[in-house]
Design a protein around this nucleic acid. Structure first.
Length: 732
RNA sequence: GCGCGGUUAGCUCAGCUGGUAGAGCGCUUCGUUUACACCGAAGAUGUCGCAGGUUCGAGUCCUGCACCGCGCACCA
């Protein structure tokens, strides 16, 4: 027996060495498995993508959970003999990365991005990204993730840029990307547009003001935006305002003097709220913008891009909004226009990344049109015929509705549909510099959309870059070589499943469905398994402010990656929040050592085992029970009940194999009956062999390390050994 | 306001298609015997949120309610 078994299992002395050996073997790559004869060339393909972590980020416990789950499944499928591919990658996370670097430069050099200029800033951001790329990748490796590194992709690399520009051009040509003046979420702090999903609403105590507006009393929470309000809107069925006609003009005294206002009747007004009458500020409010569009009203800008008042505000021009409010209210009071004020709680929209307060603005932006019909030339999506006319919105709905994409959790399916149904056009342009630049060039009155700059003089490229989710949305196929028609693409798309946190369902998952549907006529993945947030044992989110952060690497250092993986998987039913408890991880470290000692005992007592020794009835019974376990585990894995499989294996290994079978073996081995002894020796080695295989997807390191000492070893690595089939001769 | 999820042992959670309640940690007592003290044996602890209903039988299905969490909408 190898002397290493005389000491307790030491993950830190083992894991790095094992991972390096796996990586060196090239067997994470299914093509290599085929080449080495471990996998049949015509075996079914099974692929998943690693949700690309932020290139400048570090591994957090949510990643650790997803990595554990996906690695367990891909290792299982690989052992089942499939051509199993797990594609690694990282995300440039444009806004987050650029603002991080900008902040550093500001702090260290006192310079803004404008001092550096576009080219220099982009160079520095890219350099920073490249530099920190290795950190996250080494952390993913430490989890034991069996990713095919030869297919590594980065959302900003050349191949992905080709995919992004091709996607943009195709959608533009199909009329699904357009440029227009629309109201967008403007972040004055970040100086960019953001999407609805990047907004965080914060509750705020404020005041609600009732103002005299000619013959009306209007309610507002934002008197500082009211300078240009020249339309007063009410519900057409409101009896209080029955005497007023749509389009009627009235003269009234307003903040900075007399104005002419127009009465507008619109059904979107809530008669119950405030006085049932309001004035509108179309340039700075989504709802008001919609009303203005419907009635073709004038729109006027009040607030500039830095959150300051424009000259229309008269004496208040140039003031910041936050400073202006009280002063304006004071003036209204002086003029007798303030009827009353009351306390009020409302939600303020803030930018997720910068924390800046969102001020909606009308801007010339690029959009993906989700409601415009197009003809889908080729479709493999259930419920969508090739050649039929459809909108992107319908496509996203049908792909899930007709079961093309399985979302086993009904609750999330409803949330998804609800979101789809309320979807607006997707604003894809961002006013930052780091990202995929919009592939559009302007030359005087002309506009050119293409994958490369047009020939000739005088063309200027659009300064904006694309929303980072635009490139992420292509991920399932851009990583496989699209737009080229590669064999990878034909073999490995659609992918098998994705397991995102529910917060990313709309942001990413739905957009992958959109892009894959439009560009390939395929679904991006067959199943969506949504998981919850990882919480601490008090049920709190992990966050910096609570200082309850768990560093997965710290857990690995102390307990080993196998223990961390088990701690995250066991008890985490799909879809529920995941509770993280360090005690659990410690328990599974002990389990790894238990397995280690099972191996020690078994190897020590089975040195001269006759591999053909007949089994006595008692041992046959034990093998039958193990068959049942194997079937259970296999079924659980097929149904994505990874947490069940892991727990059952734990229970069997410790409380059956170790506590009962090994204990009962002690008197047998010291007994006189040779037939019983040889049967038992063969039994133990058989059980250990099969149990190691079953446990490998969950605890790859310790099982692999033991495997290397197994007399039954029939593959260079347990990683590519065969998943056990029930022993047929034992089945009744 | 609409919707989703949760409520099971002291703590954190499992319990798939309904059949006499489970795991880990913690707790109590005992134990160094061919592996493991990162261990073993034995044990205690639950009207499965509340109230009804369906059923021979419900933690599991249905209805209502309560509390907790989350999402969406409103936010003039």
């Amino acid at each position: 027996m190898n002397e290493k078994f005389l000491k307790p299992y030491d993950p830190s002395a083992t894991e790095g060495r094992i991972y390096a050996a796996w990586e060196k073997s090239g067997l994470f790559n299914p093509d290599e498995c085929v080449k080495q004869g471990m996998t049949k060339a015509d075996a079914p393909a099974y692929s998943i993508i690693l949700p690309p972590p932020n290139v400048t980020g570090i591994l957090h416990v949510g990643h650790a959970y997803e990595d554990s789950l996906q690695d367990a499944v891909i290792r299982y499928e690989r052992m089942r003999g499939k051509r199993a591919l797990w594609i690694p990658g990282t995300d440039s996370a444009a806004i987050a990365t650029q603002s991080r670097v900008e902040k550093d430069i500001q702090k260290e050099e006192g310079k803004s991005r404008h001092d550096l200029g576009r080219e220099e800033l982009v160079r520095r951001v890219a350099a920073f990204a490249k530099e920190s790329e290795g950190t996250i990748l080494s952390q993913v490796r430490r989890m034991g993730a069996s990713l095919d590194w030869s297919r590594y992709a980065y959302t900003m690399d050349a191949a992905r840029n080709t995919a992004v520009t091709a996607a943009f051009k195709r959608m533009y040509d199909a009329g699904l990307i357009y440029r227009g003046n629309r109201i967008v979420n403007w972040d004055p702090k970040g100086q960019t547009t953001i999407s609805d999903d990047e907004i965080i609403y914060k509750e705020e105590q404020a005041k609600f003001y009732y103002l005299k507006y000619g013959p009306f009393t209007i309610g507002t929470a934002r008197p500082e935006t009211k300078f240009g309000d020249k339309y007063v809107v009410m519900h057409p069925a409101d009896p209080r305002y029955a005497e007023w006609q749509n389009g009627q003009k009235i003269e009234l005294e307003w903040i900075n003097g007399p104005i002419t206002a127009t009465v507008v009747k619109d059904e979107s007004i809530d008669m119950e709220f405030g006085t049932g009458a309001m004035t509108i500020t179309p340039w700075h409010s989504m709802v008001d913008f919609d009303i203005a569009q419907r009635h073709e009203l004038d729109k006027e800008q009040i607030i500039d891009e830095y959150g300051k008042l424009l000259p229309i505000a008269g004496e208040f021009a140039g003031m910041k909004l936050t400073d202006a409010r009280e002063k304006i209210v004071e003036k209204l009071r002086m003029k007798g226009l303030l009827v009353k004020e009351e306390p009020y709680v409302h939600n303020v929209a803030t930018a997720e990344r910068t924390g800046g307060t969102i001020e909606p603005q009308i801007k010339l932006q690029w959009f993906v049109d989700v409601t415009r019909p197009f003809v889908i030339a080729h479709s493999e999506i259930p419920g969508i015929e090739s050649g039929s006319s459809i909108t992107l919105k319908m496509l996203m709905r049908v792909a899930v509705e007709h079961g093309g994409i399985q979302m086993p959790q009904e609750g999330f399916k409803k949330t998804y549909f609800h979101w789809i149904d309320n979807l607006r056009d997707w604003c894809i342009s961002r006013q930052i510099w780091f990202g995929h630049r919009i592939p559009v060039w302007y030359g005087g009155e002309q506009m050119y959309v293409g994958t490369e700059a047009p020939g000739g003089e005088g063309w200027v490229q659009d300064p904006d870059v694309l929303d980072t989710w635009f490139s992420s949305a292509l991920w399932t196929f851009s990583t496989l070589g699209w737009p080229k028609e590669t064999s990878d693409l034909a073999t490995f798309h659609p992918t098998a499943f994705i397991s995102p946190a529910y917060e990313i369902l709309n942001l990413w998952v739905s957009r992958m469905i959109l892009m894959s549907g439009f560009h390939l006529g395929q679904i991006p993945f067959k199943t969506v398994l949504i998981h919850g947030l990882v919480r601490d044992r008090q049920g709190r989110k992990f966050s910096k402010s609570l200082n309850n952060g768990i560093d997965p690497l710290d857990m690995i250092d102390r307990y080993g990656a196998d223990a961390l993986r088990m701690g995250l998987l066991v008890g985490s039913a799909i879809g529920n929040d995941i509770s993280f408890d360090e005690n659990k991880v410690r328990g599974y470290k002990n389990f790894a050592n238990k397995l280690w000692n099972i191996a020690r005992f078994t190897l020590d007592n089975t040195r001269d085992t006759d591999p053909a020794a007949p089994f006595v009835p008692k041992d046959t019974e034990i093998l039958v029970a193990h068959n049942t376990l194997t079937r259970d585990i296999t079924n659980d894995m097929e149904e994505f009940r990874v947490y069940m499989a892991a727990e059952k294996l734990y229970h069997y290994t410790w409380h059956e194999l170790a506590d009962k079978i090994l204990e009962q073996s002690k008197p047998i081995f010291s007994g006189k009956d040779a037939a019983v002894r040889t049967s038992r020796a063969r039994l133990l080695i058989t059980l250990l062999d099969r149990t190691l295989r079953l446990l490998h997807p969950f605890m790859p390191f310790v099982t692999e390390e033991i495997w290397q000492s197994m007399p039954t070893k029939d593959a260079t690595f347990l990683m590519i050994a065969k998943w056990p089939e029930p022993i047929k001769s034992l089945l009744q």
